[in-house]
Structures are given as C-alpha cells and as structure tokens.
C-alpha cells in the first residue's frame, strides 16, 4: 500500500514519480478542456482551429508581401516562407502567454484540490500545441497547392518544434510561479512577446542579418527554431547555423532548469497566497 508522508520544510526538487504517473491522464484532460472550451458556443466550432491560421496567412501575405514589399521573389513562395516561421513562433508566444497566467487562472483548483501543480502550465502549453497542429494542416495544404515538397531533412522538423515548445515552457514555468505572487507578470509578458517578435526572423530570413550579429541573435532560441523549421519544411532554405542551434539548445535547457526549480520551490505556497 502506498504511503504518503506530508512534512514541513521544502519539497524535494523531483516530484514523486508515482504520483505523476497516477495523474498522467489529467494533463491530457486539462489540455482537451482548454481546446474544447475555446470553441464552445461558436458557429464554426472546431473549424476555427483551421480558419484562424488561414486568416493569419492571408493577413501576413497582404501586409508583408504586398504592402511592406518584403517579398524578394525568391525560389520559395514568400507566403510559405513566412508561414513556416510564423506558425512555430505563434505556438511559442501562445505557450508563453498562456503558461504565465495558467496557475492564477486555475486559482480555484489550486486552492481546493491536490494534484501535481506542474500539470497546469504543461497542459496549458499543450493547448497551444494542438492549435499548432491544426495550423500545420493548413500549411501542408498550401504547400501542396504551391507544389512545394518538403526536403529530406523534414524528419528533423519535430525536433525543432519540441525546441520551440520547451523554449516557451521554461520561462513559462518561472513566470507562472512568480505571477502567483506578483500579478505584474501578466502585464509584462505581452511586451516580452512583442519584443521577441521583432528579434525573431518571422517576417524576414536570417540571411538578411549581418554575419556578426547572427550568433548573438541565437541567444533567442526562437531564431534557431524558426530557421530550423524553414530548413526542414522548405527545399532550398539555408540550414541553420550549427553553433547557433547549440547555443539556443543550451539556453533552452538552462531556462527549463531554472523554470522547473523555481516552480517546484514556489508551488507549496501557491494555495496560501493565490
């Protein structure tokens, strides 16, 4: 029979694994709740999950391609180039934003029910990932329309998506925990995302950035993620800088560790101060 010991003092850094296993389904259920709830009482229902990326693509083509004239007439259709970068970035920003507010948004559950708190930000991020897959569907249809077939390195695509997901989860965990005490976080995060948008090659290609700045820019993991996604989805797109990818991976791992440790250290107090 399992024995649960409740003690004063700080919690162990590693959450009890048997418990995570017991609640394994909760993560998925909460994610499904997030997806379902979004499209309740809408006419198009789950259709919005597809419709939204279509509209985004449309807006981006008009603004970047037609008005800002960033379309350089390269071999790859500009729209696909932008989409291949914008979709992962949208996933990243949605993950970061929703994860930061996730614990506070579930205050009722936090103060009345026990379950591994890590489930909250993780499941919230999964909602953004589900959205991303719908958007990816739209992308695939468009790529087929343009007749652009993915190159062989497309097998590495999931790796870059995982990087993007973890890049959001790390800071997301930390921000979610701090937000419980200082609600200022939710005021700051949108600006943070905005700044990152400008620092990430969403509307342009990294080739346009002077060589000496590239490594520095790779401190922003989304640079490598976007470059990697383009490289794996579009034939002829330049491969991401290996040094940059390694640097990004190191940043992601560090942020993830920091986020995880902070979250674990603060989660005991969530119910008391939320």
């Amino acid at each position: 029979m399992q024995e649960k010991v409740i003690r004063s003092g700080p919690a162990p850094l590693l959450p009890p694994l048997d418990e995570l296993w017991r609640f394994r389904e909760l993560c998925w259920t909460l994610a499904m709740r997030g997806v379902l709830v979004r499209y309740k009482q809408t006419i198009f229902g789950i259709g919005w999950a597809v419709l939204r990326p279509v509209l985004t693509a449309l807006v981006m083509t008009i603004i970047f391609g037609k008005i800002a004239k960033l379309d350089d007439g390269g071999a790859i259709p500009y729209l696909l180039m932008v989409m291949a970068g914008a979709l992962p970035f949208q996933m990243f920003s949605a993950c970061l934003l929703s994860a930061s507010g996730s614990v506070v948004a579930n205050a009722g559950m936090v103060s009345k029910i026990y379950f591994p708190r890590l489930m909250i930000p993780v499941s919230t991020c999964m909602v953004a990932v589900v959205d991303f897959f719908f958007a990816l569907l739209v992308y695939v249809v468009m790529a087929l329309w343009y007749g652009v077939m993915p190159p062989a390195q497309a097998v590495l695509f999931p790796m870059f998506i995982l990087m993007g997901f973890l890049a959001a989860l790390g800071p997301g965990l930390w921000l979610a925990a701090v937000n419980v005490r200082y609600r200022d976080i939710m005021q700051i995060v949108p600006f943070l995302v905005q700044i990152l948008t400008y620092l990430s090659p969403v509307g342009f290609s990294m080739e346009k950035v002077p060589e000496r700045w590239r490594l520095l820019m790779s401190l922003n993991p989304m640079v490598s993620v976007i470059d990697g996604c383009r490289w794996t989805l579009l034939p002829g797109a330049p491969a991401p800088d290996v040094n940059g990818v390694v640097l990004s991976a190191v940043v992601i791992v560090l942020m993830l560790l920091l986020g995880f440790v902070c979250f674990r250290r603060m989660e005991d107090q969530f119910a008391d101060i939320i």
Binding site: K4, V5, R7, S8, V110, I113, D268, Q269
Partner: peptide, 9 residues
Amino acid sequence: GITRPSEGE
C-alpha cells in the same frame, strides 16, 4: 497536500 504544514508530519 494542498498546502504544506509549517511544522510536524
């Protein structure tokens, strides 16, 4: 297990 005790077990 919602909140941690300050002392005891």
